[in-house]
Amino acid sequence: MTTISHEYKRVFVWEVPVRIFHWVNFIAIIALIATGILIGNPPALMSGAEATNQYWFGINRFIHFAAGYIFTLNLVYRVFWSFMGNKYANWKVFFPFSKKRRKNMSHVLKSDILLQNLKNSSFSNISVGHNAVASFSYLIFFILILLQIATGFALYADNATWWFPKLFAWVIPLFGGDALVRLMHHIIMWFVIIFSIVHIYLVMYHDWLEGRGEVSSMFGGFKFVRKERVDIKKELND
């Protein structure tokens, strides 16, 4: 057993496409939430103005739809990259159901979330890419936003001239009408908001706890791993 040093090595985890995806995603979601909340609850502007001189609500909706397109294409691009990118970007990591990943999940839950101080903690429990809980949350997030995209484009379809939104027209009869679809779209937003709060908190929390540059990794692409970890791998490979 190697003794634990405090030496770290830099490892390249997030490739440029992943980082671009992440921040486009971030900006699009913020825009969608902001414009979506306004669509849901427009503020009172008791003005004497005539409609001729104003179009803010139309613009707001336009931003929402434009952001919706960007958001959707960005996601498609990320799915594509999950077949092309490195092992941390691969689609498989989002299905953390192997024995090893399940073990990792229970570790993260016990140690990081429930804050137990585990006796035999080993650095092999520290993930390099997404930890198992995180990747599971991304799977749920993925399903949520697929629903959000489906309901969003279904609502949009009737006004669209392009074939793409029309692909989602079947969603309306499935739920018996626009009213329920719109309500779902609205409610899913709240799940997205809750996901974002938890996600941002946990990213910062891990950065604080582990000190491996979690936050900056999504900017620069690098994280840090203990030297020993690299050594073991080397030993094994040798």
Partner: peptide, 20 residues
């Protein structure tokens, strides 16, 4: 068509002018 998509009050919707 949705009632909304042929509603003559639609310009007020787009302008964000609402009955409270």
């Amino acid at each position: 068509k949705r009632v909304h998509d042929s509603c003559y009050r639609r310009p007020y919707f787009d302008a964000g002018l609402f009955v409270e």
